[in-house]
Design a protein around this nucleic acid. Structure first.
Length: 941
DNA sequence: CAGTGAGCGAGCTTCCGCTTGACTT
């Protein structure tokens, strides 16, 4: 479609000016990239960035355009009953930017969408197309390395938009929205508000929880072996030097047990025929070998070879930055971002280990200069793609440019310097020769005084050519592990040479539970399971930390008890969704869609509404799981965890975790690691003093009065009996309830006095008789009130509880109960007329904060609205929104569950939808596998 | 997690992936 563009660059001229007049607007994703590319393209091109995605489904109610507010599906942003059509709005923070792009486009004669060549990039391009509505020719421009040649080639070889790829992205987006926005509310209802669930975060949380479960179930095993130090100097070795350590391998040909021979339950694996030694066996054997003669029984030499590690991608960089620089995932990404923006490194969010040709030659150039030609392989090394679902839109993370700056040449310092150095070394090393050397295994035999043949082994490693290890050695997550460049030298020995055991000792070991995840190892695990993307790894950690699903203990990620409850709920009721294979299967489907071999709709339908799987099994859809089957989820059950070996239950309550033993309860510190909650720990918690404040003794009863914090806030209560010292609980439960009372609002837990407390405990106060019935005054759930039989009246102030007279009480009871809010409270502010109703609008203060009303309709002020500055227009808008939404007026008498309510609501809304839609939609029968365009729901703003 | 007697104007929380500033503490 577009005219041919200048085939510039052949003569090496710096300018790649387009032929003819006019300019092309090139849109990439990142501003830093735009800057670089602008330099490569030269005149005739204007390069701007989209700054990531420009549109998405509305995040919250405030972002839903008014005309969709009444729709049942508006909350989801996906019209689930209308072929899962998504509703897109321009992100609030992108409105100005989109306007700018439109203005730039007005001056261009061609639009080149140069977003990344992956699923998300293709989608960004499509959204740009939808939003900018260009009238000039549009082409898709793609490249996956940012070098002058690659960019110029890309500008000359554009293609059309790949709509199948866009559909695949949209399917992914819709699925994630449905999962997140349907399952999270289940957690709000069953566990705690503000929690969240999602395809990625829930699996990440589950991984951490499962690891903790393994730790809880773990029983260590003890095993012993022998460690010897042999002296080879009498063996005729030329240097005569040396002693070396060796470990006992077998006794009478039977291998000595090591850690991996044991199960996590502390038992020996049944398939192992090994010699398991305890302390006594080991010590006695050591005794019998004392003074025995030893000799070398075999020497085995093998060549050692090690190839360099692939250049960094996001996850490997995060891991090494964690191991070597102590940076969290987030910190590593922030430092990398700064390096990227200032032109020191290539893009840091990538799943590719590929180097561009120019990067390869830059690396080789550095190798030659810094290490010499001996370290340079004949051919450049190519790294195969490591990651299964890699989309490879970018290069590996490497120093930027066609020639690399050494760390010293950059002038950087601090973490930027250290991370650059890491990246630089890793990149250069990736183009160096293998390390080579020799590994040696020596076996040594000796016979004990009881004629047992004990065989020891020692291993050595000698590196004769360091190759890439000269530049870079990868760190390890296990601090005890040997790094790749670690040498262990053994004296040279011949078979049959006699050895003297200098030292021979029994050594005890215990198996260890699997280590907790760190940020870096969790990210690694997620990548291996194809969960999450380079741009999100750091924020996944952030999310599960924010939600309180995990907390950090040093670098370890420890799951909270809350996480156990949430994971328990998801596993039992949404098993498919937290299946580790779920995302991997999703990726397959998305790939099929992208290739045009599968359709999006049937798949989404089955996910949401249920149906037959390809295997012919029937599957319950998400809609039913969060709807009709909601009542199957027992909050009590999913929030309970047994404390191993006890009849104590750990329960996750709205106010944190607590222990429950037959109704006796005690708080559990929020930062207690679940694997530390043993029987002993639980007993200790029950025994602990609760930390209540003692106010003194009630002179009348002699009981101690304490102030504590409870479910309903601060309160005081009396202590009925001294806790029996070390004794058992009193069995005969002739329970006398202690008197309790909430503090008045005017009181404070820290300052409340014994006098206050006694007054509170004296309640309810008998005010007197009214109409022949006794009236009492007390404090309750809704504040101070009077009670007369079954009738009641609220009081104005707490003090009235003590001061009100029978006469005043009678007056209150003579008046009917106040209905609605108290009359005659002046409005906070008066506004103008509501154009819709013609009534005067006022702002009032209510139970839920300020709201605007025209006398008929009430609407709360939203976030960002202020009483003082609210204008008439905004007020009218709020009222209009409220009207649009509510059937409000007369509600059917509230049935039992939320399910029935939502079904009813959906019924009416669905009707509206169909009438509206029949005009707007229907006609353009959607082509399968094509993204929606003509009937797109958008926020025309 | 202490324990009691209204009637009412709710609204909001949340997902995953792309990307940076512009704000305030």
């Amino acid at each position: 479609m577009p005219a041919t563009k200048g085939s510039a660059g052949k003569n090496g001229s710096k300018d790649n000016a387009r032929q003819g007049e006019g300019t092309a607007l090139v849109i990439v994703e990142s501003p830093a990239k735009a800057k670089t590319i602008a330099g490569y393209l030269g005149r005739g091109y204007v390069v701007e960035s989209s700054i990531g995605h420009i549109r998405d489904m509305p995040t919250k109610a405030a972002e839903i355009p008014a005309k969709y507010k009444g729709q049942a599906w508006a909350r989801l942003g996906v019209d689930v009953d209308g072929d899962f059509e998504p509703l897109y709005v321009v992100n609030t923070d992108k409105k100005a930017h989109v306007k700018k792009l439109k203005e730039l486009m007005a001056e261009a004669d061609e639009l080149l969408l140069a977003t990344d060549e992956d699923r998300e990039g293709e989608a960004i391009a499509w959204h740009l197309l939808q939003e900018l509505k260009p009238k000039i020719p549009v082409r898709r421009m793609v490249f996956n390395e940012i070098t002058k040649d690659a960019i110029r080639r890309a500008a000359d070889n554009t293609r059309d938009l790949n709509t199948r790829l866009v559909t695949a992205q949209e399917t992914r987006r819709i699925l994630d929205r449905l999962y997140g926005y349907e399952v999270s509310p289940v957690l709000w209802k069953k566990v705690m508000p503000k929690l969240s669930a999602g395809r990625v975060q829930s699996v990440a949380t589950r991984l951490v929880v499962e690891r903790e479960r393994e730790r809880i179930a773990f029983t260590p095993a003890e095993y012993w072996d022998l460690k010897a130090v042999f002296d080879a100097s009498g063996s005729g070795a030329p240097d005569g030097a040396g002693t070396f350590p060796a470990g006992l391998m077998s006794v009478d040909g039977r291998r000595v047990a090591v850690g991996r021979d044991f199960t996590s339950r502390g038992t020996l694996r049944s398939d192992r025929d090994v010699h398991h030694m305890d302390e006594q066996t080991a010590r006695e054997l050591a005794g019998r070998l004392d003074g025995a003669a030893f000799a070398v029984s075999s020497v085995e030499r093998k060549p050692y070879r090690r190839s360099p590690y692939a250049p960094f991608r996001t996850t490997t960089m995060q891991q090494e930055a964690s191991r070597k620089l102590g940076l969290s995932s987030k910190q590593a990404m922030q430092v990398a971002q700064r390096l990227y923006e200032n032109g020191y490194i290539t893009y840091m969010r990538t799943d590719s280990t590929t180097l561009s040709d120019s990067a390869v030659s830059a690396s080789r150039d550095q190798v030659r200069r810094l290490y010499g030609g001996d370290y340079l392989p004949d051919k450049p090394r190519v790294y195969a793609k490591k990651v299964k679902n890699a989309q490879e839109a970018h290069e590996a993370i490497r120093p930027a440019g066609d020639t690399f700056r050494t760390p010293a040449e950059t002038g950087l310092n601090g973490p930027e310097f250290r991370l650059y150095e890491l990246i630089w070394k890793r990149t250069v090393a990736s183009q160096m020769k293998d390390a080579a050397g020799e590994s040696v295994t020596v076996r040594i035999e000796g016979t004990s005084s009881a004629d047992e043949v004990a065989e020891f082994t020692a291993t050595g490693k000698v590196i004769t050519f360091h190759g890439f290890l000269k530049a870079y050695v990868e760190g390890s997550d296990d601090p005890a592990a040997d790094l790749d460049d670690r040498e262990r030298r053994l004296p040279s020995m011949e078979e049959g040479a006699p050895l003297k055991a200098e030292n021979l000792e029994a050594e005890g070991h215990a198996t260890r539970p699997p280590a907790r995840y760190t940020e870096a190892t969790l990210v690694k695990e997620l990548e291996e399971r194809e969960i999450g993307r380079p741009s999100t790894y750091a924020s996944i950690i952030g999310t599960i930390l924010d939600r309180g699903y995990v907390f950090k203990k040093g670098t370890a990620l420890v799951p909270s008890f809350l996480a156990f409850a949430v994971v328990q709920l998801l596993e039992r009721h949404f098993g498919n969704l937290v299946d580790y294979e779920f995302t991997a299967r999703l990726e397959d489907v998305l790939d099929d869609i992208a290739r045009g071999e599968a359709e999006s709709l049937p798949w989404l339908r089955r996910f949401y509404f249920g149906g037959q799987t390809s295997g012919g099994e029937s599957e319950v859809g998400l809609k039913e799981l969060v709807g009709d089957q909601l009542s199957d989820i027992d909050p009590k059950e999913i929030s309970s965890l047994p404390v191993p070996g006890t009849d104590i239950l750990l329960r996750v309550g709205r106010y944190g975790p607590y222990l429950d033993r037959d109704g006796e309860r005690v708080n559990v510190p929020e930062d207690l690691a679940p694997d530390e909650l043993t029987k002993d720990k639980a007993e200790e918690l029950f025994a602990q003093p609760s930390g209540d404040r003692e106010l003194g003794t009630d002179p009348e009863t002699g009981r101690t009065i304490v102030a504590k914090t409870g479910r309903f806030g601060p309160y005081i209560t009396e202590v009925l009996e001294e806790p029996a010292e070390g004794g058992t609980k009193p069995k005969g439960k002739a329970k006398v309830k202690p008197r309790t009372s909430s503090l008045f609002k005017s009181m404070d837990l820290d300052t409340v006095t014994l006098e206050d407390a006694l007054r509170l405990l004296s309640l309810p106060r008998v005010v007197g008789e009214v109409d022949g019935e006794e009236v009492t005054a007390q404090n309750g759930r809704f504040g101070p009130y009077l009670k007369k039989g079954t009738d009641s009246r609220s009081l104005e102030t707490e003090e009235q509880i003590f001061s009100i007279t029978p006469e005043q009480a009678k007056e209150l009871f003579d008046k009917p109960k106040q209905r609605g809010r108290r009359a005659a409270v002046p409005p906070l502010r008066e506004l103008g007329q509501d154009p819709a109703s013609g009534a005067k609008m006022v702002i009032k203060d209510g139970r839920f904060g300020p709201y605007v009303t025209d006398g008929e309709v009430n609407a709360s002020l939203r976030k960002g609205d202020e009483v003082d500055s609210l204008g008439d227009l905004r007020a009218a808008e709020l009222l209009a929104e409220r009207r649009a939404k509510a059937p409000a007026k007369k509600k059917a008498p509230a049935k039992k569950s939320t399910t029935t309510k939502s079904t009813a609501a959906k019924g009416t809304a669905a009707k509206k939808t169909t009438t509206k839609k029949s005009t707007a939609k229907k006609a353009p029968a959607k082509k399968t596998g094509e993204p929606r365009s003509s009937s797109q729901k958008t926020d025309e703003s």
